[in-house]
Simulated assay, not measured.
Amino acid sequence: MRETTKGKILVTGGSGLIGSRLSELLTQAGYEVAWLSRSSGKADKYKTYTWDIERGEIQHDALEGVEAIVHLAGAGVADKSWTEARKKLILESRTQSTALLMEKLSALERKPKVFIGASAIGYYGADTGDVMIDEKSPAGDDFLAQVVKSWEASSAPVEGMGSRRVLIRVGVVLSASGGALPQLLAPLKFGLGAPLGTGRQWMSWIHIDDLCRLFLEAIENTAYTGVYNGVSPSPATNKEITTEAAKVLKKPLWLPPVPGFVLKVALGEMAQIVLGGSKISSRKAEEMGFKFDYTHLNSALKNILLK
């Protein structure tokens, strides 16, 4: 059963890569979009409410009349080196912000119909090899896997409040505006592109528009509950993505691949993000009837790179 009444949707992390594009699509679909942010000056287009996670405060009227919450906020995983302090921030920015939302929602007389939580395919572990992974696969035991497990668990209380909960484990988001692709393409533009490590590690990618449409579908279609992988039907290896991007841009590749030990020296523990990977299935979303606009890497890269 599909909800047809448009209402107010509150987005945390709205100014980020996913949040900004999702807000555009939600507005186009007829929803009233509001942001929950640390600062009130984040957007001219959207009503912005403020919250202070450390002090446990949310602007008093932010949650009033909200039909859905899309919770995307969290410190960037690849923005800075993984010092112990940074790792603590990566975890707590997700779990503490979610806990604050749970606390404030529990006091509301009228709860939102649905809570959509961003998650990550890092749940399954940094490197799961060539095995096809689905939502029933076990969690990994590395740092990011533990972060994602705690992140997902922190929103569980909303189900006891009568709200529908959907978690979308986001893969490698392809967008011209940010994420992994601009970093991957930077050397290519100078003719110095190369696969990273062996190049055989899987990158379960998704076009930014398909991902945001999946979030929209999870809001509107009340049959969506639980966990869904936010990835395309065609995962590719690091070498395949690099090679295909070079073809689209008509740039040469610089071989051999960048050795893994070089990346480990440069990035430390964070190197696992680029040296590892997982082959993730999108079947569950497809079985719900979701149609991807970009099922193949070539069409996704052309749409992003040749605009």
Rank of each mutant, 00 (worst) to 15 (best):
L255G: 06
P235T: 05
S234E: 11
P256D: 05
P256S: 04
V231W: 08
G268H: 01
I241D: 05
P259A: 05
A236H: 07
E269Y: 00
S232P: 12
V262W: 03
P257H: 13
E244I: 09
G260M: 03
V258P: 02
V262F: 07
G260S: 04
V231L: 13
F261W: 12
W254Y: 11
K239S: 15
I241V: 06
K251H: 15
L253H: 07
G268C: 05
L267M: 11
T237I: 04
V265H: 03
L267F: 06
N238K: 06
L263I: 11
S232C: 07
G260Y: 02
K251V: 15
G260Q: 01
T243W: 13
L263T: 06
I241Y: 05
F261R: 01
T243K: 14
A266Q: 07
E240S: 12
V248I: 14
V265A: 12
V258E: 00
S234F: 10
G268P: 04
A246L: 14
E269S: 01
P252S: 07
P235V: 10
N238E: 06
P235F: 06
K247T: 14
A245V: 11
A266I: 04
E240D: 06
V265E: 10
V248K: 07
V262R: 01
P233W: 12
V262G: 03
E269G: 01
V258Y: 01
W254M: 14
A236L: 10
F261V: 09
P257F: 09
L253M: 09
K264D: 01
P233G: 14
A236G: 05
K251F: 15
K264Y: 00
K264A: 00
K251C: 15
L253F: 06
T237V: 10
P259Y: 04
V258T: 01
K239F: 13
L267S: 00
S234Q: 14
E269M: 00
K250Y: 08
P259C: 02
A236F: 08
G260P: 00
S232K: 09
K239N: 14
I241Q: 03
A245T: 07
V258F: 00
K251R: 15
E244F: 10
I241F: 09
V262M: 09
L253N: 10
E269F: 01
V265M: 12
P252L: 11
F261Q: 03
P257M: 11
K264C: 02
